[in-house]
Amino acid sequence: MELLVVIAIIGVLVGLLLPAVQAAREAARRMSCSNNFKQIGLALHNYHSAYNNLPTQRGGTWDGTTGWPPAVTTTHNNSQLSMLVGLTPFMEQQAIWEQISNPLDDADDNPVDVWPPMGPSVDNNDQYTPWITQIPTLRCPSDPGNGLPGYGRTNYGACMGDNYYSPWGDHPWWSLTETFYDMGWPDIKKCQRGVFTARKSTQFRDILDGLSNTIIAGEMITYLGDRDVRASSVQASAVGSQSIEVPTACRDSIDPQRPGFWDPAYETHQENGGGTGVRGGRGYQWANGFAVHTEVYTVLPPNSEICGDLSSGQWMGALTDRIHTTVSSQHQGGAHVLMSDGAVKFITDSIEAGDNTVGMTNPWGTGGLASAYGLWGALGTKGMKEVIGEEF
């Protein structure tokens, strides 16, 4: 009897201890994740000190002739590189930067004799060594995603502001040049309100709301092939009358029995033929500047669903910016964001985010207007005079 009592006591103690151990391990992983983000913040500041501007989101090389949709190329990268590529030499990744910035002959069975400086299009990632290289600083230890069908995953992306519906500002192939921005399209800055603007670099001086009040990057999970609403998308126009301009357009297609996953009745852009492979998954390509891979928007609160408006044959977030992606994480209750001054904050899922039913039907008319998405939206804009007066 005494032995049974002792065994029972030990069992109770172990039962109490295991959750504490798991919590301690997650706390350590969360701290490591935060430290990685701080390294990225330091890299951004060092980059700005060196070049007097921030790295470009969706920058790179282009031959001036490639049409739409962008094709897989071996002679240039279609101007689709993420801002993380330029940060590599500032994140103790000088070796990979040397491979990217110089002509590279990395294998005897290479389909081309020598890869060009700045590499081919990122969709050549199973052939071009730098694009498939996993960079430890870009991975959150709490995220279990690893290996195929993703290569070179990332858990951190550029903050593009509170307006993802900017159809003329960043994705059309004819808008790659600086001329597009400097002549005839002054309204671009009205609808691209985040620190990063596609295909055009910005400076810290452009962040008029203050570096400590403006999000520059956000955390995100990588897709695990499980129809997670935070890492895969359904087609908004296929699930109801609402269009993608309404942030909650895809919400009716969430499984009511499993709120974190899409209803099996709806096809996602990962399970269909057009979205399989490395193009479709959230965070699958650290070097790819398209929204699904390396961008976050301050529209829906952290860990909300992402929603696109693409047909099943298109890549999710590749051919168009008609997709919104928010921050997400495998931590409990929220996700990390990086402020422009280098501070890392943990934002809870319950942050005040305004009215999520307000659509963005007129992106050209957003200039000078306060964000419709409350505190969360205000944190994503860099020059709307929405200054946060207290700690959050």
Rank of each mutant, 00 (worst) to 15 (best):
D226R: 10
C159S: 11
H269F: 06
Q203F: 00
P55K: 03
N46H: 08
S175E: 03
D106W: 07
D321M: 06
T137Y: 11
R58V: 06
I221A: 09
T222D: 04
F180E: 02
S371F: 10
Y297Q: 09
Q285E: 05
P247R: 02
E219H: 04
A158W: 02
A95M: 11
V112E: 01
A217M: 03
R227Q: 09
S121W: 05
G194P: 01
Y266K: 07
Y156R: 04
T197M: 02
D182N: 08
R29S: 07
Q57F: 05
I254E: 02
I221W: 04
G210R: 03
G240Q: 01
R25V: 09
D255A: 01
N36R: 00
M316L: 15
P144S: 03
F392M: 13
H336L: 14
W364N: 14
D106G: 14
M91K: 00
E267R: 12
L310S: 12
N362E: 13
D187E: 14
W262V: 00
L104W: 08
I351F: 14
T222I: 02
V5I: 04
E219V: 03
S350E: 15
E178A: 08
G147T: 09
S49L: 11
L3S: 10
V358H: 13
M160E: 08
Y47S: 01
Q314R: 04
S166W: 06
G169D: 09
T197H: 00
Y47L: 01
P259S: 06
S166F: 12
D108S: 12
G225R: 02
D63R: 03
N213S: 03
V337F: 14
A236R: 02
V14Q: 05
E92S: 15
D123Q: 09
A372W: 08
I10L: 04
V358C: 14
T56C: 13
T129R: 14
R58P: 03
T75W: 02
Y156S: 08
L379G: 14
V21F: 12
L87I: 01
T177L: 09
Y223T: 10
P301Y: 12
P103C: 11
P69A: 11
A198Q: 02
F37V: 07
D349G: 07
Q57Y: 02
T137G: 05
D109L: 05
G41I: 00
P19T: 05
P264V: 00
R139T: 07
L375D: 07
G150P: 05
P70D: 13
V344H: 06
A198W: 00
Y266L: 07
A28V: 11
A372G: 12
G367L: 13
S304P: 03
P363L: 07
R29L: 11
N53T: 06
T137H: 12
E386H: 09
L44T: 01
V358W: 13
S243D: 09
G334Y: 14
V337S: 14
T66E: 13
E98N: 15
S304D: 05
G277T: 09
T133S: 15
G317V: 06
P19N: 11
N53R: 15
H336S: 11
S175H: 04
K38W: 10
M183C: 08
